[in-house]
């Protein structure tokens, strides 16, 4: 997905191969999810989860925190991504409930397999968590594409969580998700919606348009 540059389709360009199809099938509902996340983010008390149990939410939150970790800058956790995903699973991503329902126990089984003393994903160390998640990478494609499937699930679990996490982190904060716009802060996208040039480093000292030489001939390669 990451490097799937089938770019003739500009829709694919706008959203990535898998997730765009998924998103575009659910456009009105994603708005509702975003609005929900927005409300949850604004409310003083933590929002109730609608799909996840509190225990499940802790596990999903831990996964999102490895996908976009918190370090010197905020990560998925600060962006409230788990709330976005929870609402998504009762609205536009309702078809993905099975993926989560079956994928999470699959992941926990993998935790106990690799680290017999660790009870669950959220209890593992960050290094252990990364090791676990790397088992979902697609080795056949240099680890770049995410075709990994948790056994028995309808859709690839980690790929789904990854897409949901990126969306919840980078979605327009005015519409919800991306709590307080922290995702946009991380990537350096100004939250304003009106800009004046110069926009950046390369146009700030542009001297103005200078005409092309007038003696140009129509090129014949």
């Amino acid at each position: 997905m990451l490097n799937d540059l089938s770019r003739r389709n500009f829709l694919t360009r706008a959203g990535g191969a898998v997730s765009t199809v998924w998103l575009s099938a659910h456009w009105p509902a994603i708005l509702a999810a975003a609005e929900h996340a927005h409300q949850a983010a604004k409310s003083a008390s933590p929002a109730k989860f609608q799909f996840f149990s509190p225990e499940q939410a802790v596990e999903i939150d831990a996964i999102t925190a490895r996908i976009i970790p918190s370090d010197e800058t905020p990560g998925a956790r600060e962006a409230g991504v788990v709330y976005f995903i929870d609402k998504a699973l009762t609205t536009f991503a309702v078809d993905d409930q099975k993926t989560y329902r079956e994928g999470l126990p699959g992941l926990q089984a993998r935790v106990r397999e690799l680290f017999p003393t660790v009870e669950k994903f959220s209890a593992a160390t960050p290094d252990q968590q990364d090791q676990l998640l790397h088992t979902f990478d697609d080795k056949a494609n240099n680890g770049n594409r995410f075709r990994a499937r948790a056994s028995g699930t309808a859709k690839p679990f980690f790929e789904t969580v990854r897409a949901h996490t990126i969306i919840g982190f980078l979605i327009d904060p005015d519409a919800g998700g991306n709590r307080d716009g922290v995702g946009w802060k991380v990537i350096g996208r100004d939250r304003q919606h009106m800009f004046q040039p110069p926009f950046g480093y390369y146009d700030k000292d542009y001297a103005g348009w200078q005409p092309n030489p007038t003696n140009a001939e129509k090129p014949k390669a």
Partner: peptide
């Protein structure tokens, strides 16, 4: 490009798809 589309499709080949290097 917009942020989500950028994250999904416009990072250089070989960039990991998650984790610190991705971010």
């Amino acid at each position: 490009l917009t942020p989500i589309g950028f994250a999904m499709g416009a990072l250089p080949p070989g960039t990991p798809g998650w984790g610190k290097a991705f971010k």
